[in-house]
Computed example of a mutant assay.
Amino acid sequence: MTPLVVRPEPQSESLCRQLAAAGHQPVTCPLLDFAAGRDISRLGPKLALCGPRDYVIAVSVQAVTFADNALKSQNRPWPDTHYIAVGEATAQAFASIGIRRVSVPDDPRSEGIIALPELQQPAGRQVIILRGDGGRDLIAPTLEAWGARVRYCEVYRRQYRPDPDGGLVKGWQRQGVDSIIVTSGGLLNHLFQLAATRAKDWLLSRLLIVPSERVAQAAKTLGFTLVINAEGASNQALLKALDERKRNDK
């Protein structure tokens, strides 16, 4: 198959290598990049207030990476506290900087985080949520209702790639893209905006691989009819979903 991979680097390159090794012909076109967020300069003082009974929640690999770089530039350590990662990839990002005692929910979404046993009685505890600009707003209201003191820290912001003349979409069509791998709701919406005015029918007829049921439902609302939920955003989960479809098409 010829899947279009739009996730950011370096994840895009890594996924494309595995797809090619499995016999696919991936087309890579990262549509998203990241920059430091508006709260990055205040990260150190915020984390310094965390103690052993408090929590730091990272919602993505980028949240860990940008926070760690900021702390290093500020010559500040990560605090001795409870760490929570939204998924295994984010937990691995924590491990890569020396933080290995990290809780990871079975469900890699906000719903999974608030269902963790250690967060069921957060009253009086401080929670710092490391995230990007925008995103879902479920964790903070829920934990605040349970008595926690929650503060967001926007450590990165998203920068989506434009396509003013439609050249990207035309290139995907020329290269015979028959499937698209999308790893977030934000990327899905941006992809749709790029193609909707010039190649909507073509886009909606592609096989779409997504990481969760939430993104799958969003895709169906936009009009996609061939949607597979890979149940994860790891390379292994995405490749498995595409391979299963390839075998079924034979």
Rank of each mutant, 00 (worst) to 15 (best):
A219I: 02
A219C: 03
A241M: 09
V227E: 02
F224P: 02
F224L: 05
A237E: 10
V215T: 14
V227M: 06
E244V: 03
G223V: 06
E244H: 11
V215E: 05
L226F: 12
E213N: 13
N229P: 03
A230M: 01
Q236M: 11
R214E: 10
V210S: 02
N229G: 09
L242I: 06
A218Q: 15
Q236T: 15
S234H: 11
S212I: 08
V227S: 07
A233K: 00
A241Q: 06
T221R: 15
A216N: 01
F224N: 02
V215I: 14
F224Y: 12
E244Y: 02
G232H: 10
G232K: 05
V227T: 07
Q236D: 15
Q217K: 14
K220F: 06
S212M: 05
L222H: 01
A237D: 13
S212H: 00
L226N: 13
L226H: 15
T225N: 09
G232Q: 05
S234K: 00
P211V: 01
T225Q: 13
S234Q: 08
I228R: 14
L242N: 02
D243F: 05
Q217G: 06
T221S: 12
S212W: 05
S234E: 11
S234M: 01
L222R: 04
L239T: 06
A218S: 13
A237F: 10
A233T: 05
